[in-house]
Structure formats: C-alpha cells, structure tokens
Nucleic acid binder design. Structure first.
Lengths: 220, 220
DNA sequence: TGCGATTTGTCCGTATGTATT
DNA sequence: TAATACATACGGACAAATCGC
C-alpha cells in the first residue's frame, strides 16, 4: 500500500501556515527563541522550505530575524498595539472612501451576514471563530474597495491583529463590549454617510484598543 | 594575489539588492520571464540564496510568482499606478498627523536640506539622484512620525514608486513641474497648518500621478 | 489530447563564516 | 581565548508540476 501523500500546497506554505497558527494560538510564545535545525527536526522537514516559511513570517512581522543571529518570535508591546490600531484606522477610513460609491444592496446584505456569524461565534463563546469573524467583518470594506494594494496591506496586518485579539481573549474571554460597537459599524456602513462611518471608525478602533490594551505588559 | 572577496551582507541580500536595482533601472523589463536555473548560472550563485532573494522581491511586489509557474517581473499598469499614489496619499497624510506635534526646528532644517539636494540633482539632470532625492524628501515625515509600522509600510512601497519614477524619467527626462509643488510642500510642512499640508498632499500626489500617468501603457 | 522537455519544489551532505558560551 | 552551536551557502540529486509541441 503506497503512502501517496497528497500535497495541494507547497510544503513551505504548509509550514508557514502551521507556524503562524502556532504563534497566534500562543503555542510559540512571544520572545521565544527558535533555531532552524531544531525546527526542521521537530517538524520533520528539511531546512530549505523551512527557511522560506521563516522568511515569509518575518515579512509578516511574526518573527524577528537578523543575519547570523537567533530567530525569535516577535514580542508584543503596547507601542506596537497602538501603532497597529492607529494604522488600521487610517487604512479602513481610506477603504471606506474608496468603497463608498461601489456599495450595492447585495454587498450590504453580505456585511449583515458576516455580522450575524460574528455574533453567533461570540454567543457560543468560540474564541477562534470570534477572531476569524472579527477579521472577516472588517475585511468586507477592503474587498469592496477594489484596491489591490490596499487589500494587500491590510491582509499583511491580519496576523498581528490576530495575535493581540487571541492574547486578549485567552486572558479575558469573549467580551460583550465589542458587539454594540459592531452593530453601530454595521448600521453606519450600510445606511449612514461617509463622514459618519469615518468618524465612527476612529471611535471603534479606540474601543478595540482600550479593550486589549491592559492585556499587554508595559515593557517590550 | 588571492581574490579575497569580502561579504558584509549575506549573499541572498546582495542578490536581492542587485536584482532590485536591475528591475528599477529597467534592465529587467516588466513582464519579462525569469527562470531560477538561468539566473543562478548567470549570477554564478546557487539556487538557495537566489530563491530567498526572489521571495523577498515578490513580497515587495517587484516579481510575480505562483507555485510551479513561471517567475515574471511585475508588469506596470495605470491601475496599479493609481493605487500606488492613492495609498501614498492616505499614508502620508496620516504620517503628518502623527508627526505634526513632534517637529522641531532641526527637523525643519533637515527637510530644507533634502529639498536642496533634490533641487540640485534635478538641475544636474541626474535621473538616479532625482529619484533618490524625491524618496528621501518624502521619507522625512515618516521618519519623524516615530511610527514603526507606518515607516515599514511606506518603505515597502518605495521600490514600486521608484519603478514608475524611473520609467517616466527614462521617457521624458527630469521635468520641472515637480519642484514648484515640492517648494509648496516644504513651505506648508515647516510653517503651515496640519490641515493645509494634508490638503496639499492630495494635490501633490495627483500632480505626481498626472506627470507619470501618460508614460504607462493602457493595458496590463 | 497526450508526451517529452523544462522548471520548480524538495532533500541531503558538506563546508565555511559568525555568534555565543 | 577557545570551543561549540548555528546560520549561511554550495552542489548534486530526484520528485512533482507545468509548458510546449
């Protein structure tokens, strides 16, 4: 019986996705030191594809690397968290400017569906699904913007956002504060004015930042 | 006489920088197909570090790659050019918001120095120095913003900006239109109000876009 | 549509330079 | 300072997928 292992994705991408999940889940903790040879033994892969995965995760900001020096999982910090939410605010407001005139009723219905899925995940206290749902909810406007560069920049930020959301949820569970803000976001995005939703995003992001802020230690 | 080749940087980074220069200079043209084995022979390096360089350039958007498919130099397009300048507008306005209160007279003096260097490069009709100067001029506010994520996002855009600027300059030489806009930018950045410079950036970017737009063919 | 040629993806063994102890 | 661990790099080899005819 030949063991015909199917490989839909290149091995390097499988490794990348798996390591990214382990970092987001906290299995590999912030600041933890990793070595290539160690990882290649434990994952039972050679260093070639592993190095490619490591480089991509470094580009995403999940790993920190310097030539000939130790590989580390990026440490979380309040400064980075503030930067993350402030740049998300700028990008998402810009996304709404790009998307505003393009919205159709079908698009609005799609956002309501994503809101419902997010609400459901929260009610079930499903931490992973809540994070995924939050990302999908915000992804809506970037998809709608029809702006490839903007979408790419936002999607490169997603893993870092997931890290902070997951970290917070593991400490404090699924909070209910978010959903009222999300309901307002939904309402303004589908039936408000561009100015209203842009103003709301600043408050929305600030609320998200405040929610997570205390979960992060002061010093890097 | 032993040929003692010094390697300050890892080979993969040397390859990356060299390929990036060749793409920006137009030596490797948009849409051109590349093969790893071919490149490794011509550059006299093995495929390992070459693949790492290729991946980084793919992250920067200079190369396009899909599993098992041909590697290509990214084609330029008017749509991408519009996206590039529109997102630059959003990021640079945000950068000024972040940097505004942090400016000192020493910072303003630094911007004037960069303006002078840019003006000098243009007067000398030095195409390469003009592009570099333009980048350095705009880089000022990102450095000042003290926002690591923002700076990183902007710097990842730089190679693409350089491609379009170089392409335009090779076709039309150094134009004089820019410098009046740059002078206004300098004045507002150092002595205007935040609102004024933010409004100016939109016009400034639009002017830059218009300048380059006609140099790019319609169809991708 | 198939089939060979080309190219990418992967692995191994080894060597060398750098960092860390 | 020396010794060890590790990252970087090379070359060959084969498998897997794509491309061209």
């Amino acid at each position: 019986m030949p063991v015909t292992e199917i490989r839909q994705l290149p091995l390097s991408e499988q490794i990348r996705d798996m390591l990214r999940d382990r970092i987001i889940e906290g299995d590999l903790q912030p600041g933890e030191k990793l070595t290539e040879t160690d990882l290649s033994r434990k994952l039972n892969v050679s260093r070639g594809p592993l190095r490619e995965a490591i480089m991509q995760l470094t580009e995403e900001g999940l790993l920190v690397k310097a030539p000939y020096k130790a590989l580390r999982v990026r440490s979380v910090s309040r400064k980075e968290l503030r930067e993350l939410y402030s740049i998300r605010t700028a990008l998402e407001r810009f996304a709404f400017e790009q998307a505003w005139e393009k919205r159709t009723e079908a698009d609005n219905e799609e956002l309501r569906a994503r809101f419902a899925r997010l609400e459901d995940a929260r009610n079930r206290r499903d931490l992973t699904a809540s994070v995924e749902g939050e990302i999908a909810f915000h992804n809506w406007v970037y998809e709608l913007s029809d702006h490839g560069l903007l979408l790419a920049q936002w999607q490169k930020l997603i893993p870092r956002v997931q890290i902070y959301m997951s970290l917070h949820q593991r400490l404090h569970g699924v909070s209910g504060v978010f959903m009222t803000a999300n309901a307002e976001y939904l309402k303004l995005a589908t039936s408000g004015t561009l100015d209203h939703i842009c103003n709301h995003i600043s408050q929305h992001m600030q609320a998200g930042l405040d929610e997570v802020y205390a979960s992060i230690p002061h010093e890097e």
